[in-house]
Amino acid sequence: MKKTLYYLAFCLVAIAGSSCSKIDNYPAPSNTLKGSVMDAGTGNTVQTETGGRGTRVKLMETSYSSDPTPYYFQAMQDGTFNDTKIFAATYKVSVEGPFVPLVLTDNAGSVLSDNSQNVVIKGTNTVTNLDFKVEPFLRVDWVGQPVFNADSTVTVQVKITRGTANSSYQQDITDINLYVSNTKYDGSNNYDPRYSKLTSYSGATGTVLLGQTISITTAGGALPQQDVYFRVGARINAGLDEYNYSTPVSIKYP
């Protein structure tokens, strides 16, 4: 009787022990995918905002299916991206954001052109560089530096031009906004509503400003004495209506 008990106990320990020893975890991903999303016309990276309304990278693991569930990660607001936890696999990579889509379809859903890039990532701890050349809907460029006015408001000057000649993306400009924030992560999702100057345009009233030097002054009176960053965002009514941005600039309180 006692002997049986010992046998059983021994078996239990053996089973418990062996079940634990077999760790079937897949090794953590260690490859890096980095690169930038560049304006095909100027070579500058395309400025966007942080979070869901900025540029994101789309990975399709195509080795097992031509139509897999995509994996996305967000690019940084300056148009570069860097993901250090990518599994080794075969990917079709594209980017989505405020620019002419890399995959263009017609009204019936047929693919007209596909500028996605295919990349095979093998091994561990590798670094893969991918650059995408895109046509942003709009380019927002500074004209000079922001200027502190006598009443402690700030006036900036920008010039907005189209970044694409694609006839499907020549919609009217709907918004030109001067965003004020106390960090450089300044955009439509993060700004100080007291001082930012938001302007919406209807019809072609915004579009006629293309190519001109536009002056925008902060709203709400004197700016407080603290770090301040300025950024101008503009958008057309295309895709998901995301903004194209200037670079963020800061000036010292005089």
């Binding site: 139509d67 379809t105 009204n107 019936a108 859903g109 047929s110 009514n237 295309a238 895709g239 998901l240």
Partner: peptide, 17 residues
């Protein structure tokens, strides 16, 4: 609407002509 989405078989999942 001006958001469109097609699937692989050209069904328009988002948007109506």
């Amino acid at each position: 609407n001006n958001i469109t989405l097609f699937d692989g078989s050209q069904n328009q999942l988002c948007g109506i002509p």
